[in-house]
Design a protein around this nucleic acid. Structure first.
Length: 600
RNA sequence: GCCCCGGUAGCUCAGAGGAUAGAGCACUUGACUUCUAAUCAAGUUGUCGCAGGUUCGAAUCUUGCCCGGGGUACCA
């Protein structure tokens, strides 16, 4: 990890001074940014290592102060209680941060012995409906996590597991059979997943109608749940029969299933492409759903699982209770296939760690899954991780595909890019080609959406307010992109005017203004932001960091003219600073899978 | 009932046991013949759900309670 020279030297000093303390091998002091109301750029917080040094915090701070009083990199050091605030010489600020950009970026990567092979499963859509905002959050979290982990040095495998079979798939199939009249995505001019999703909604409307009629005719059933009454309806029985036919390999049903699934998968492919998602492999549940049964048979022999009198296979999970993992009729339940695919993914890729990006309503499911894998004695079962994220709600309440009250993913992309395009046209009018406007709008619109979703901690249940979320001002992706665009513009103009800088001969000492130093110090913390995010499997800190850096840049931009600086040496030094900031902002946004337009 | 997650400004959310609890939005005001105003500057905003405990120090750890969400299937 990158560090300031004076801080590294402080570490050496403290190790020697407090030699009776036992320092961990990798002990290091992480300086903090000095709060704005205090004088200085960095703060050393002595509370943090007072216990380690077995000394009173303010006494340590006094030692730290004397150390810095004589340090050539320090202009001013001030002790307040256990805090020591440092004002660095400009030379030191830049030498240890933006002055060595390669070192800064190298500091992002973990040491080799900590790099792993990580398998991430995310998205996992059903092929009975198009994706909505909830899937967009899942996709965004998954792809950004994959991107982040590979950036810090891990080998990452991205997996999708498509749920392409089961009763809910039969529902849209049956509706198509009855109401479809042979329509296709081509004939209707509708994206395949949307076409199929329409039949899913039709199915549920028809089912509700029949349920209402049934309750009308049979008052004794009035208080039963929809699920209980499912097989009492003609539609329900027909759906059940279709599922059986599918499992028995009925050719007609299989043909319909294949056709409709291919429509949906084509549609998904376009959605993924627009988001920039590329999976290393896509498993289909129709090919993996039987996998768990062998594991269960083997576990039964070894006594890990028990067969109940009625034939169901169970496992005793102690506090979590007894879990059925195979039905009494021998068919598999949800967790059966996850047992199978977990093992399958392991034997296909031998990852050091597996991560599932799945909603938080399935926390218990994954706890059980991991516990069962441990009981089965797989040594890698300790390296399974569920990244549980919260639901996305609308001001009107929850999204429900069945009722069609969802924010559709593709529609939302269109809406965001249309608004971004409008904003571009307002600025540039006819000065820029429609193709260029469209390209920028795509980057800005999708960037705003992804950034908005990543800004929140994954586990928070978030409220999506369309009116507020669609904005491009304030704490947004476009705010960060805009800072890049401003720097690009400076660099373009500099080229036009023939101003160039040679990174070897920058006079960093000239950048002594508060806004300049604050910008460089903020830039310094980039590697820490990434590594912390990677440790926590949470990208929200990166979004926060980028906003902070962009904000520091905008302040600098206001106060410190670059091309119109007092002299050329100052201009080139400021250009070098801008260049570094643009590199970091771009790198950070790319880590979040957000692109940066050349101009805005 | 039991288990998990949350409750911080009008709204949406940040807050490694440490300094006077922050940001954006919203609201008020000011700044574009200037390197892009998708920007900047200034102002207003708090019983950190409630009550105890641990600590030199608690929004943060702990216990109890209140409120909201999720889970607790031979559904996925």
């Amino acid at each position: 990890m990158n560090s300031f020279k004076c801080i590294t030297e402080l570490e050496t000093f403290l190790r020697r001074k407090f030699s009776r303390a036992v320092f961990p091998e990798d002990w290091s002091i992480i300086p903090e940014k000095c709060p704005p109301e205090m004088t200085g750029e960095l703060t050393v917080n002595c509370f943090r290592f007072a216990k380690l040094l077995r000394e009173a915090p303010d006494k340590i701070a006094a030692e730290v102060l004397t150390f810095f009083a004589a340090h050539p990199d320090i202009v001013r050091a001030e002790q307040i209680k256990a805090f020591v605030n440092l004002t660095l010489t400009p030379g030191a600020v830049y030498r240890d941060s933006v002055g060595r950009l390669e070192a800064l970026f190298a500091g992002v990567r973990l040491p080799e012995d900590r790099r792993q092979c990580v398998l991430i499963e995310y998205s996992a859509p059903n092929t009975n409906k198009p994706q909505h905002l909830g899937h967009v959050r899942n996709n965004t979290l998954g792809m950004s996590l994959a991107s982040l982990l590979s950036r810090v040095g891990h080998e990452v495998i991205q997996i999708n597991l498509v749920n392409d079979r089961g009763i809910h798939i039969c529902k849209s199939m049956l509706a198509y059979e009855r109401f479809g009249a042979g329509v296709t995505p081509e004939s209707a001019g509708i994206k395949g997943d949307h076409l199929v999703g329409g039949f899913y909604v039709k199915y549920n409307a028809a089912l509700q109608l029949e349920l209402a009629e049934l309750r009308q005719a049979r008052p004794d059933l009035r208080d039963e749940s929809d699920e209980k009454l499912f097989l009492e309806t003609e539609l329900g029985r027909a759906t059940q029969k279709m599922l059986r036919d599918w499992e028995n390999g009925n050719e007609q049903v299989l043909a319909l299933w294949k056709m409709m699934n291919s429509w949906v998968l084509d549609g998904f492919e376009r959605t993924y492409e627009r988001m920039g998602i590329k999976f290393d492999h896509t498993y289909l549940e129709s090919e993996t759903y039987l996998l768990g049964k062998d594991i269960i048979a083997a576990g039964l022999v070894r006594g890990v699982f028990q067969k109940r009198a009625d034939g169901a296979v169970t496992v005793d999970l102690g506090k979590m209770g007894v879990k059925v993992i195979l039905r009494s009729d021998g068919t598999s339940v949800y967790i059966t296939q996850d047992l199978g695919t977990t093992l399958r993914k392991y034997s296909d890729y031998h990852p050091d760690e597996q991560i599932w990006v799945v909603g938080d309503e399935q926390i218990l499911h994954f706890k059980m899954l991991f516990e069962i894998m441990k009981k089965l004695g797989y040594p890698w079962a300790n390296d399974l991780h569920h990244l549980a994220y919260g639901m996305v709600n609308l001001p009107s309440g929850k999204m429900k595909s069945r009722e069609g009250t969802v924010v559709d993913a593709d529609d939302l992309f269109d809406e965001m890019t249309a608004l971004a395009g409008e904003a571009c046209r307002e600025r540039y009018g006819n000065g820029v080609s429609p193709e260029e406007i469209a390209a920028r709008a795509e980057i800005i619109g999708l960037g705003a959406l992804k950034f908005m979703l990543l800004k929140f901690n994954p586990k928070t249940t978030l409220l999506f307010d369309p009116a507020a979320s669609v904005k491009f001002e304030g704490d947004t992706g476009p705010y960060v992109q805009y800072a890049c665009a401003r720097i690009n513009s400076i660099e373009r103009k500099a080229r036009d005017r023939g101003i160039e800088f040679d990174s070897g001969s920058i006079k960093w000492d000239l950048l002594a203004k508060e806004e300049e130093k604050a910008l460089a110090v903020t830039a310094f913390f980039y590697p820490q932001a990434l590594q912390q995010a990677a440790d926590k499997l949470d990208c929200s800190g990166i979004a926060d960091y980028l906003l902070e850096l962009a904000k520091a840049f905008n302040r600098f931009y206001r106060e410190c003219p670059v091309l119109n600086a007092d002299n050329e040496e100052l201009a080139t030094a400021r250009m070098a600073l801008c260049h570094a900031v643009r590199e970091i902002l771009t790198n950070g946004l790319n880590t979040l899978t957000i692109e940066v337009p050349e101009a805005m």
